[in-house]
């Protein structure tokens, strides 16, 4: 089994490119905290409305520079009253579902996360620009899936 000299060059180049891609995302993820949404916290999907922080969904200021936004997703909408957060501050989104799988996706941001019943998804994001951002569900959740949306105001 021998490789043509050009094939060796090609594979070396290809593998090097893949290693560079992996290094870029790996370093950015693990040393600059740019990991995708996730989290290992669990919750009883039937008791969401009586479990903190989802018993009081919405915005809570944690300290000077950090806000938490708790959102309950359900078919077909989001329970999160008065979604107003400041630009330039870290916003920690915590999202769960009372029924089926949904997504919580904020247009034109890195916030694009899956919401799984029984689990709490966490994502930290800092808005740069003020404005009204569309929130929508991009995981099929039933007949009204395409009508599931909301808005967050960044001031």
């Amino acid at each position: 089994m021998h490789l043509h000299k050009y094939e060796k060059i090609w594979l070396a180049f290809g593998v090097a490119a893949l290693v560079v891609f992996l290094s870029v995302v790996g370093v950015s993820a693990f040393s600059h905290d740019h990991t995708p949404a996730g989290g290992m916290e669990t919750i009883d999907p039937k008791k969401v409305n009586e479990t903190a922080p989802f018993d009081k969904p919405g915005v809570t200021q944690l300290d000077d520079n950090t806000y938490q936004v708790a959102v309950v997703s359900m078919a077909f909408g989001y329970n999160a009253p008065e979604l107003k957060v400041p630009a330039g501050k870290e916003i920690i989104f915590k999202v769960t579902s009372t029924d089926v799988v949904h997504s919580f996706t904020i247009d034109n941001t890195k916030v694009n996360l899956m919401v799984v019943p029984g689990q709490i998804t966490t994502k930290s994001y800092t808005f740069e620009k003020p404005g009204k951002y569309l929130i929508l569900c991009n995981e099929y959740c039933g007949t009204g899936h395409h009508l599931m949306y909301n808005e967050i105001e960044v001031y």
Binding site: H2, H4, K5, Y6, W10, F13, G14, A17
Partner: peptide
């Protein structure tokens, strides 16, 4: 090179083409 000759053909076009893919 010797190895190129083993396959009996010139594969310069192939090398350029795969680099285009890359």
């Amino acid at each position: 090179s010797k190895k190129t000759e083993e396959h009996g053909v010139d594969l310069r076009g192939t090398l350029i083409s795969v680099f285009f893919v890359g």
